[in-house]
Design a protein around this nucleic acid. Sequence first.
DNA 1: CATAATTATTAGGCTCGTCTAAAAATATAT
DNA 2: ATATATTTTTAGACGAGCCTAATAATTATG
Lengths: 224, 224
Amino acid sequence: MKSATLLSFTEENYLKAIYSLTQKHGSPETSTSHIAEQLSTKPSTVTDMLRKLADKKLIAYEKYRKIELTKSGKQLAILVIRKHRLWEVFLHEKLQFGWDEVHEIAEQLEHIQSEELITRLERFLGFPKFDPHGDPIPSANGELHAGQRITLSDVQINKSCEVVGVNDSSAVFLKYLQQVDIGIGTKIKVLEKISFDGSMAISLPRKVSISVSKKFADNLMVIL
Amino acid sequence: MKSATLLSFTEENYLKAIYSLTQKHGSPETSTSHIAEQLSTKPSTVTDMLRKLADKKLIAYEKYRKIELTKSGKQLAILVIRKHRLWEVFLHEKLQFGWDEVHEIAEQLEHIQSEELITRLERFLGFPKFDPHGDPIPSANGELHAGQRITLSDVQINKSCEVVGVNDSSAVFLKYLQQVDIGIGTKIKVLEKISFDGSMAISLPRKVSISVSKKFADNLMVIL
DNA sequence: CATAATTATTAGGCTCGTCTAAAAATATAT
DNA sequence: ATATATTTTTAGACGAGCCTAATAATTATG
Ligand SMILES: [Mn+2]
Ligand SMILES: [Mn+2]
Ligand SMILES: [Mn+2]
Ligand SMILES: [Mn+2]
């Protein structure tokens, strides 16, 4: 279960990016250009790294054809995500950082190498199950319970739901949520859906109803 | 007061190494070979970096002649040390790591870039004044109070003193101290000094007296 | 003070992660 | 089915950080 060779920051970020993309798009495969976009780098740079990750058996790679995490590649990606989310909990719960501030710092902390550190951090935090954005925290052996979360867009008219997370963790989206007083646990009822542009009218506790865009509703995760 | 260009891990480690060497040897200057040894690298590699640090005005460098931190170089070195020691406190106090385990992990954590993170960490820890090895924690504006600490070697026969820190933070020394039950706060009385090899006999609370080497006594910091 | 020993710098080369420009493969559209 | 557009890979280059071997400068010694 020990990874023989330690990975660089960069390699870890590639694994995480590939994992995120496969999750986001349903398919276990992804593309050079998507990875490049995700990491703000160039496709040619990605191709170089893909060859290296393939050499290390972290991805199954057939040029022009297939990019897919191997079992161990996926495992490592999940462990980085585990570290990232535990650090986010620490920053939010213990240091009182806002949920729009934690991601950037966790992006650095996730690469600290010490299994013992994460074991102890997790215990110190009381074995949290979710990060400040509602995303589940993988267990030490790499298990991740996705839950049956849907987007606000998928909620039918007149149904109520509860916010459990966000798809987009960018500070700009999180700040907007804060502004309209939506957070993890907020109850939302869908009043109306406009087929023209996918926008919807929703009601919030102790507030007049507000209108939100399709993009907004696509990025808010809820349970019924 | 803001550093214009962010430094790399490597650059930060060089500044810290130069600072430590000047402290250890009294003089504000140090040498290429000492830096190389401190960082487990080669003198030629050090020369390259010295040129870079000089370009950035972090050291005053005259080849074959002088290596000395500038005001801003020293300031940055102290801020890295501040981060290092605060993280060590966190690891020891909050995560219950042993004092021989914290250094290695702090060596990584000290490079996380976020001033706000350190500000909040310091508050979370209750504004500690010393790290787990008894070393003082610099303030946010870079002040460092050394205190009037001496080594055990400097203590006269029949005088008593109290352990306040160590000069050598290696795990092997710290584990040895733990074994003979010496830690921060331990009271020691010097019974005898052997001029032949500099070793000394000391008495410890609720223990028979033990003999320690010159090297041991040189690395244990005490106050009278 | 001249020679030897030590220390520091330069020269040249390597890997990693990045880029731009060009070529090749694949996908799309007429 | 061919031509066009898009995506991906290759070729070649660069800076950072490291190395070894060779050279230069300084320091120590007889
Ligand atoms: Mn995040
Ligand atoms: Mn990252
Ligand atoms: Mn330390
Ligand atoms: Mn370091």
